[in-house]
Design a protein around this nucleic acid. Sequence first.
DNA 1: ATTTAAGCGAGACGGTACGTCTCGTCTTGAA
DNA 2: TTCAAGACGAGACGTACCGTCTCGCTTAAAT
Lengths: 171, 171, 171, 171
Amino acid sequence: MTAAYELVVELGYPGLSVEGIAARSGTGKQTIYRWWPSKADVLLDALATKADLHIPLDDTGSWAGDLQAFLAASFRVGRMPGVVHILRTLMAQAQIDQEFGQRFRVGFLQRRREALEALVERAAARGDLPAGRTARLVTRVVFGVIWYEVLAADADAGEELIEELVVLLAR
Amino acid sequence: MTAAYELVVELGYPGLSVEGIAARSGTGKQTIYRWWPSKADVLLDALATKADLHIPLDDTGSWAGDLQAFLAASFRVGRMPGVVHILRTLMAQAQIDQEFGQRFRVGFLQRRREALEALVERAAARGDLPAGRTARLVTRVVFGVIWYEVLAADADAGEELIEELVVLLAR
Amino acid sequence: MTAAYELVVELGYPGLSVEGIAARSGTGKQTIYRWWPSKADVLLDALATKADLHIPLDDTGSWAGDLQAFLAASFRVGRMPGVVHILRTLMAQAQIDQEFGQRFRVGFLQRRREALEALVERAAARGDLPAGRTARLVTRVVFGVIWYEVLAADADAGEELIEELVVLLAR
Amino acid sequence: MTAAYELVVELGYPGLSVEGIAARSGTGKQTIYRWWPSKADVLLDALATKADLHIPLDDTGSWAGDLQAFLAASFRVGRMPGVVHILRTLMAQAQIDQEFGQRFRVGFLQRRREALEALVERAAARGDLPAGRTARLVTRVVFGVIWYEVLAADADAGEELIEELVVLLAR
DNA sequence: ATTTAAGCGAGACGGTACGTCTCGTCTTGAA
DNA sequence: TTCAAGACGAGACGTACCGTCTCGCTTAAAT
């Protein structure tokens, strides 16, 4: 079901209406309102279902390796068709719709931040985290760069950015 | 005129309608459409008019000092009432409305990026830019962190983040 | 069960929904659809059950007396709380819902017409029916006046109308 | 404009929706809501516009003649295609929708009643009104019979009913 | 005593229409 | 000639019910 909405999204637009989702998926509008509080939440579920957003947290043996893997996986997901478009839409809705914003921040953004924080803590425990790289700084820089890329960039980021970030944050 | 819209915005909402702006400012809707292609552009103008977004590019003598000044000024602007709300709304609209997105990226985001790039170039010319801090990396990190703060943060950033960033990017 | 719906009606409105009836009576919607083809039919049954609509056809010895008794009984029923409201609703539904209209006309209106016709025939047999008072004319006039009272009147009819009708139709 | 809705009505049903009226007439829904408080009021206007409901009140010289003319004109209007259907729908809505009911009773039913009352008064002044035919009784009987015919009859009334009524009410 | 089946309450489902809202365009009337 | 005021066509919003459709659960009869 969510898969169907995904399609709507890919073709889709901010001319995406609950009306349209219902028509496309062959359901009534009420059914959608029964399960999701807003169309942004449908999108969020669709994103989670369709694009498996799992970012690997396997121990590569070093902080540099872990960070490199994390960034590479993140950019790989972003290269899937439609994903960037959905991410933009979700972040936009989170600004516009207070309540969805809350859900999005807690259920999505914070969760990802925690994943990265776990990596940072592992590095700290391992002892190969350079000085001054607090979990807070690292998450802000990493997710800041990623989201800025998604929301504000005119050109694709490419591999060099990953490399530069790894050098910056892991020496 | 733009000043009046500002007020609308501060009181305002994403329940901000062209209808409402016109009523509040005592003009007809048509008059607004004559001057701005969308209500987001009104907001953008209002932001430029009301909140002087000038970021000082005066030479403080060192890259660390320049960066520190730049960041401090940026966060100071963000602490003005309503500004963060407007920035969020503009970025959201830029995702939703393709054409405004183009104008916003070129006329606003890129312009600020160029300001910071000028600082980086000055540092490079001066010779006190640490290795690996390309203009591209620095702008992405700085604006990434700022925008992430604006769009995604649950708590205020505070001064420490500035300090950490300066240390990170300027040794 | 029908008694419960009656209550719904008395409190009720044309904001009367099958959903509401089911909730109020503590049953499922399906159960109602199992027994009645539409909510109007529920109302019709409720009317028959709750308000005993029996109109006395006992021989009073004269056509004038019979007619007087018939009219008095009819108006008495109409003065029961809720009955007029239900009658209005039923007649309205009969106009809107073709199939219920059929059932209502045959099973309710016609039945009552036949009762009055029997009275007219008794009068004719007795020989005290004034000239020109055919069964058809009498039923149309009597039920016409009653229903016009129910559907269109702004003020209550009162006793004088009965008297005038008796004089008109029975000399 | 109202003429267009008339068409909707003639094809129409209680499957008549504001949505449908708007689509058919090439307007937006809001425009309809701007001008009429409910779709029943649209119908009422359409009836007044399309079917000229003027009932002649010319003096025929006698009460019997006046009444005969009034009844004949009324039945003639009722024989126009669609008119009976609309009348039924309006009366039904008047029962269901309190506020429209008020408007319908005062602006339509009462107005017609007054027209007939004028005839009765003329007859009284002329002196050829039989005893016992008060204005109230006559209007109730005449409109009662007409509306009963419209709302409850299974077969058409025909001319004999007019004749019988004239005899009954004008000797 | 166990099975079978009917009827039940509950309520999700695909739909339709509601009346409200805002959009961006078009039309007036006064200054 | 300009512009405020606001009507207009369009169409999405979220709500309310419609009538149909499973679901388990409870009886009650038939085995």
